[in-house]
Design a protein around this nucleic acid. Structure first.
Length: 372
RNA sequence: GUGACUAUCGUUCAAUGGCAGGACAAUGGUUUGUGGUACCAUGAAUGAGGGUUCGAUUCCCUCUAGUCACC
């Protein structure tokens, strides 16, 4: 990646990341388009809100409609009409997180991890699938992804040291195979996607450092920090960043997977993270929680915002905007009372307006982080 | 008008001669590499009056209201 301004170590990293489909400014927040759509929104709307990259999902798109179909359609960009950048997750997280949910529901996860890869059931129809580092790369290449993630294992929390160690070592071996397979497949291509490795190691300092070291030896275009926000105490995020970021070369992008709340993102940017994705703005929006600016200046404590549950009775006759400091369509056209009404009667427009607003909040926060 | 049946949270359906339960709705909360539909918590009822009984929401009587049938 390159720097927006002259950059010296320790400053806030404001730069640009170049991919085969174009450039994104960093730090960047990537809205999630799991199944080929940012839920409720048109791609042009997502772009107008300030998004430059969206996250698509190997797991979901592989099962439905299938990577080969999307390849025949001309790739995911064309299929869904998104002309920005696309990062695709490897499917590793979903195999484990959806496996955990299947376990809650049916008493067994049906997920079998082996050295070769991971076997799991489609929770919709019980079909068995086998995902390996190589298959994950093939799928993401078919999708036409700009930033490809290697298949990793995301261990739960709590996790014993022994398991975390053997898991991260397997993730490293998978990463090596993914890299070799990737290089072979893109050999001779003029435009090639970026390939990112994923640092694991749970909450253990030496394991996190070991994971980073092993991935750096293999060599990737960027490095992600995975296995966070899986139930561990929130304070450990700071430690995990301190253990891992210093060993990543400064010209390589750093991606904190799955995070987070606004103040967590501000802190992580100050610590040197460049990329984020999170379901919070869209999912919580669909459930009626809205992020509200309380001041223009960002800070590490998160006192620059608050959240409201628009469904609460106190908003029933509140004819003021959701957020008077926000420039989104919801806040410039509608009242709290109207949005509450839409949620109360289950109008689809409710989730749509809330998604617009919350994404605008997150993306504007990133704009502010890039300003200073 | 006559007869039968019914009456339980806001709605709907349970249960019981000995602490009246669920679902939906309501109210509050949760959500971190998506779970559009999810999860947790809270408040909320035996139509009115009398009788039998240690104790009645339950059994009996009257009233009121509703549904159905007949006139």
């Amino acid at each position: 990646m390159s720097w927006e301004k002259e950059y010296t170590s320790g400053q806030r990293r404001v730069g640009k990341l170049e991919t085969k489909s174009g450039v994104t400014p960093t730090p960047v927040f990537m809205p999630i388009a799991t199944k080929g759509a940012v839920k409720h929104l048109l791609p042009e709307e997502v772009k107008a809100l300030g998004a430059s990259v969206i996250l698509g999902n190997t797991y979901h798109l592989w099962l439905r409609p299938g990577n080969e179909l999307i390849a025949r359609a001309g790739g995911l960009h064309k299929f869904m009409d998104w002309d920005g950048l696309i990062l695709t997750d490897s499917g590793g997280f979903q195999v484990f997180s959806l496996g955990a949910r299947a376990k809650e529901r049916f008493g067994m996860s049906g997920v079998k991890i082996s050295e070769e890869g991971v076997e799991f059931s489609d929770p919709k129809n019980g079909n068995r699938y086998f995902l390996s580092p190589e298959i994950s790369i093939d799928i993401q290449l078919d999708l036409g992804s700009d930033i490809i993630m290697v298949l990793d294992e995301c261990p739960p929390y709590p996790c014993t040291r022994e398991y975390a160690k053997s898991s991260l070592e397997r993730t490293t071996r998978w990463a090596k195979r993914a890299k070799e397979h990737f290089e072979e497949k893109v050999k001779g291509r003029e435009k090639r996607p970026l390939l990112f490795g994923i640092i694991q190691g749970s909450v253990y300092e030496d394991l996190r450092q070991e994971s980073a070291k092993q991935l750096l030896e293999i060599g990737f275009d960027g490095y992600a920090i995975g296995g966070v926000a899986v139930g561990e105490p929130r304070e450990t995020l700071k430690d995990v960043l301190a253990w891992t970021l210093p060993s990543i070369p400064e010209d390589k992008p750093r991606y904190l997977m799955g995070l987070g709340r606004p103040e967590e993102i501000v802190r992580a940017v100050e610590a040197g993270v460049d990329m984020f994705d999170c379901v919070i703005p869209t999912r919580e929006g669909r459930h009626g929680r809205l992020f509200i600016w309380t001041g223009e200046d960002l800070n590490l404590e998160g006192s620059f915002y608050e959240t409201i549950n628009i469904g609460n009775e106190q908003h029933r006759e509140d004819f003021s905007p959701v957020d008077s400091l926000c420039d989104c369509h919801l806040c410039t056209h509608y009242t709290r009372a109207y949005l509450r009404h839409l949620f109360t009667v289950d109008e689809p427009l409710a989730g749509r307006l809330a998604s617009v607003h919350n994404l605008r909040f997150y993306l504007r926060m990133m704009e502010k982080l890039r300003e200073k």
